[in-house]
């Protein structure tokens, strides 16, 4: 039986099920326990699991990320919540220099099964420091896996897979969409890491995207349908490792692809998708790959700046018409 629940509830269900299943899983972060989570993702978890396993930290991202890494090396399975990935920048030393490298440095002796999670991306008028996406940053680093989701079904299935995975995982959510509703079954399920999801089938153009840009792509696809253009929407769900097969198969069918990516354009996820498409589907392309990113700028405060900065359905539709060589 499926029911509609919000993203935050799906994440909580996933974490709680894994904590019931495995004593070694614990949740640590700022405001996760007594405050019930800055965005209420962990609401009620302190009551169920107690203070041994749901742990409020001081504001010390580097320190508690490092404590998580040490605990993971010593046999536990920590979930480390960052209030946002913007604050996780303070902990990058532990994520990049330790979590990602421990297995290699120790020649396979010490694994680091840890999930670093929190929201990534802009969330309204929060200005420069609170609006960044980090999928590209983390996905650049071998040793890490990177997941980025907004769909509640995917969120629950993937957080469970992430907690069970023996590799360190960066898990990106969305501050704006914690209330985003979706169908989630009552019964237990997992979503595999490394598999994209075709959210909408289409024949004329492929829209590849992830996180809250999925909603932008879907809205654009709906509007395009009214104009007689059939767009296929692919949600990457996992950024690293990226599911090349789903993207390539779609391009072979549609011959046109647009990447909608909230991260900055330089050396980002969109650049990676464009590379693999030209490498593996060059002969199938009827138009250049186009990407729609956040602007190559900082994001200032005023609403006009936000509007200008972010991808939106109109920008997507314009790009689709460009690759289809139509002027409607």
């Amino acid at each position: 039986m499926a029911r509609e629940i919000a993203l935050r509830d799906a994440l909580r269900e996933g974490m709680s099920e894994e904590m019931r299943r495995d004593e070694d899983v614990f949740l640590m972060g700022e405001e996760v326990a007594q405050y019930n989570g800055a965005y209420k993702v962990s609401k009620g978890m302190l009551d169920e699991f107690g203070e041994k396993r749901v742990i409020d930290t001081p504001i010390a991202e580097l320190g508690f990320a490092g404590i998580g890494v040490g605990a993971a090396m010593n046999g536990l399975r920590p979930i480390i919540e960052f209030m946002t990935w913007n604050f996780a920048v303070l902990a990058f030393d532990q994520i990049i220099n330790n979590a990602a490298k421990t297995l290699s440095q120790s020649n396979g002796q010490f694994k680091c099964p840890i999930v670093f999670r929190g929201p990534s991306g802009s969330a309204g008028q929060l200005a420069q420091q609170h609006s960044q996406t980090f999928e590209s940053w983390m996905a650049n680093c071998p040793g890490l896996k990177v997941i980025s989701i907004v769909d509640p079904y995917d969120a629950k299935g993937l957080i469970k897979s992430a907690i069970r995975d023996d590799d360190p995982i960066c898990f990106m959510e969305s501050e704006m969409l914690y209330g985003h509703m979706g169908e989630v079954p009552e019964e237990e399920y997992l979503v595999p890491i490394g598999k994209a999801r075709v959210r909408r089938e289409g024949t004329d153009v492929t829209l590849v995207t992830y996180n809250k840009m999925v909603l932008v792509a879907e809205e654009a696809a709906k509007k395009l349908e009214a104009e007689g253009i059939s767009a296929e929407v692919i949600d990457l769900r996992t950024i690293r490792p990226m599911d090349h097969e789903t993207i390539i198969n779609s391009v072979k069918k549609t011959n046109r692809i647009i990447v909608i990516d909230e991260s900055w354009p330089f050396a980002g996820v969109s650049a990676e998708v464009a590379y693999i498409v030209q490498k593996h589907a060059f002969d199938y392309l009827d138009a250049p790959v186009i990407r729609i990113n956040a602007a190559d700028t900082n994001l200032p405060y005023a609403p006009t700046f936000v509007e200008e900065y972010l991808p939106n359905p109109d920008k997507v539709i314009k790009a689709v018409k460009e690759v289809m060589y139509v002027n409607r």
């Binding site: 490092g66 404590i67 998580g68 040490g70 605990a71 090396m73 532990q94």
Partner: peptide
């Protein structure tokens, strides 16, 4: 901090 985490475990 890693040492603190090892002790935590």
């Amino acid at each position: 901090p890693i040492g603190a985490g090892i002790g935590f475990a």
